[in-house]
Nucleic acid binder design. Sequence first.
RNA 1: GCCCAGGUGGCGGAAUUGGUAGACGCGCACGACUCAAAAUCGUGUAUCGCAAGAUGUGAGGGUUCGAUUCCCUCCCUGGGCACCA
Length: 830
Amino acid sequence: MSENYDHQKVESKWQKFWVDQKTFKADDHSKKPKHYILDMYPYPSGAGLHVGHPLGYTATDIISRKKRMEGYEVLHPMGWDAFGLPAENYAIKTQVHPDKSTRGNIETFRKQIQSIGMSYDWDREVGSCFPDYYKWTQWFFRFLYKNDLAYKKKAPVNWCESCHTVLANEQVVDGACDRCDTPVALKMLNQWFFRVKDFIEDQPGVDGLLSGLDKIDWPNSTKIGQRNWIGRSEGVDIINLKVKDMDLSFEVYDSVPQTFMAQTFTVIAPEHPWVEEMVKGTEREKEVMDCVERIKKNKASGKFDIETDMEGVFTGRYVENYCGMGRDLPIWVASFVVMDYGTGIVNCSVHDDRDFAFAKKYDIPLHVVMLPPDAEEAEQVKNLEHCYHHAPEGIMQEPVQFKGRQWGEVRQDIIDYMIENDWATPAVNYKLRDWLISRQRYWGSPIPVVYDDQEQEYIIPEDELPVHLPTDVDFVPHGESPLAKSKKYHDKSDLKRIEDKLKASGDLAQDRTIVRRESDTMDTFVCSSWYMWRFMDPHNEKEFCSKALANHWGPIDLYVGGAEHTVLHLLYARFFCKVLKKYGYINYDEPFTKLRHQGMILGENQQKMSKSKGNVINPDLIVEEYGADTLRCYEMFMGPFHQMKPWSQSSVGGIRKWLDRVWRVLQKPESEEPLPKNVLSTLHQTIKMVGEHIDEFKFNTAVSQLMILTNELTPLESLPKAVKETYILIFAPFAPHLAEEAWQQLGHKDTITFEAWPKYDAQYLVQDTVTYAVQVNGKVRGELHTSKDTPKEEAISEAKKVEKVAQYLSEGTIKKEIFVPGKIIGFVVS
RNA sequence: GCCCAGGUGGCGGAAUUGGUAGACGCGCACGACUCAAAAUCGUGUAUCGCAAGAUGUGAGGGUUCGAUUCCCUCCCUGGGCACCA
């Protein structure tokens, strides 16, 4: 039958048309208002596209297509997050070079994405593993280095003794190597860091990573996730502390200063350099250092557990006359102290669970300064039977001038009191650490740094970029970065040329020699922190992106991707944006104005899709059997966009049946006969709702509204052409192939892409008659059909006559009448 | 432990200034068409009950004429963080 919809023929026809015509090319010089819609660029894995990718891509595609119809110049690009561990691990296993496997994977991904009819501007495709891209990743490193935002420092890395390799955090599973299960050790190496912490708080002209969150349209949970990750904490530094009989003075951070009088001992991190200094030559030296070693080893094992492995040792030293109270506090080494938070030294009290447990274990004296209001419980606390933790209703006992007040309200007054006495100053601390970007790995962007014969580092000149990733590299791990052994990478004449340039610029002393390059590569998150700017100006050979285009297209109006990037990628990209704003490259300090996450798609058995579980759905097969439009509409219809939801193959078939029905409806003969009133009303209702639901990311209900319209059009003998057109237009973002074909069938020559989005007419939305639910004492007892214009009094008196209602009303007297226009008439009877 | 998100038919889900719970789809059942099947079209489908009616949105309480929706207590599921003083 000619009526049948041949999805393979139609879809390949239009996909070719769009690519040939460059339909979705974004014009840098358009007069239309711009709209930049971005998907998180995918890692082109060997497994190919999985069914989760099209979920996010279809959503942004629908919005992109609607925005074009609404008259926007839409920038909607796609590229590849192409550096990373899987390609390298694959190379170790198979000896296939990552460059080769990655290029192949990219081909596959592009073909697959095109087969779903995504409206990307393919002229802007970028890949982070290509030299014309990573040249600018290196440029960013240089830029940060020049502005003192990149620095080198000794830091621990995850080390697998059995594989002789450094592991990325993602490769450490439950404290062990994910390949051989060997417990991961911590090894100290010189590593590069970016100063992310510098941008936590506001700077002149740049909102910080914290306050910037207030002005962007992001899911609240993501904002909260970032705030928690940054972990801002306000409190005091207790100052002027001195180690008795030593020339060491220090301060400790305290975020709960209310109970400072309770503090009876001090703990220091095992890694703290003072530990050795404090015990050197004393009788406790051996015991303390043995304990320190034990703790370090324990921590490095990756199996450290706070409950069972809490350990410590007395150093023999004291804090002298703590806060002028005449008390010396014993200083202990304790396993639970975090070295790089605050000063790595902490005061402890009875009013903290962990401190209490430690003191109990080692029999350290405690001092209670706050009691629960309940007398019996207070007695237990006094007897140190359990820890009385910070509680708002706790009654303060000390300092005496605060006796009787509640812990919950006394905080600021105690802080003021401590400051007046010169015991403390206000202080802020963060959990966030600077970003460690060094990776002892091959498949990443080289770090553009060289070293001289004295191991002094030099950033290489800009005209030496890119530093090419060499191919003569042995992937089998031997315990150092793969690049270290590459001859090509450390080519003598290259190094000499750089040396000459550095000497010419005065950066390198004449008597030094450049001997090697930095052989670590950059974390792939560095590549993905700036790719959104490359899409704005992808072929620029002079800059990562021209200032004009960065300000024209940016910031990104809509960004869509998985919630697993809540902290890392999204925080780093914000950091890059803020740096660019600070140094005048762009005029905005938040890269993503609006952000949405897609939910994970589970297998039919409600479990995460995985090869081993055999529940993986291959999108290619869906496209082949049912068509790209079916895949798109099905994924949108599955459920709320952000929610996790299981696949259902029979529902996919249902969507295909619906599209067939739509096609048949569009084949109905044309007529000038106007639509029946109720169908006309549904048509306009649908225009309204589909538009609104797309804007609100409620794609599932948008699809169901389109289905409702289909259901009402199905029984009609014929349709006016204008109705068909409207129907196709609101349908087009969801099922663009079918829409283009039907549009052409109606005699249109051009793509539907730039046709105007239909407007609804409010006069058709309102039905002439309304149905009131009539309630008696809150229960529905009948219905009243009446004109929408029936006045309140008349409607109520009509309602009283409704059969069942009259019966219930007769059982008492009416106390109250409720009238909600168009919806409810209610009576309260008693 | 802390922080998020969620809990509605056989299944996915719908319903927001509190106003007829279960839209739409899947599945299932029956019917039409057919020699037959597929496809298509139509009807029905929360639970108990012959019916009238009653019950029902994780559990229990509260506010209200009326609660999936607001408040309190608790349970369960998924995700994130986890020694940050």
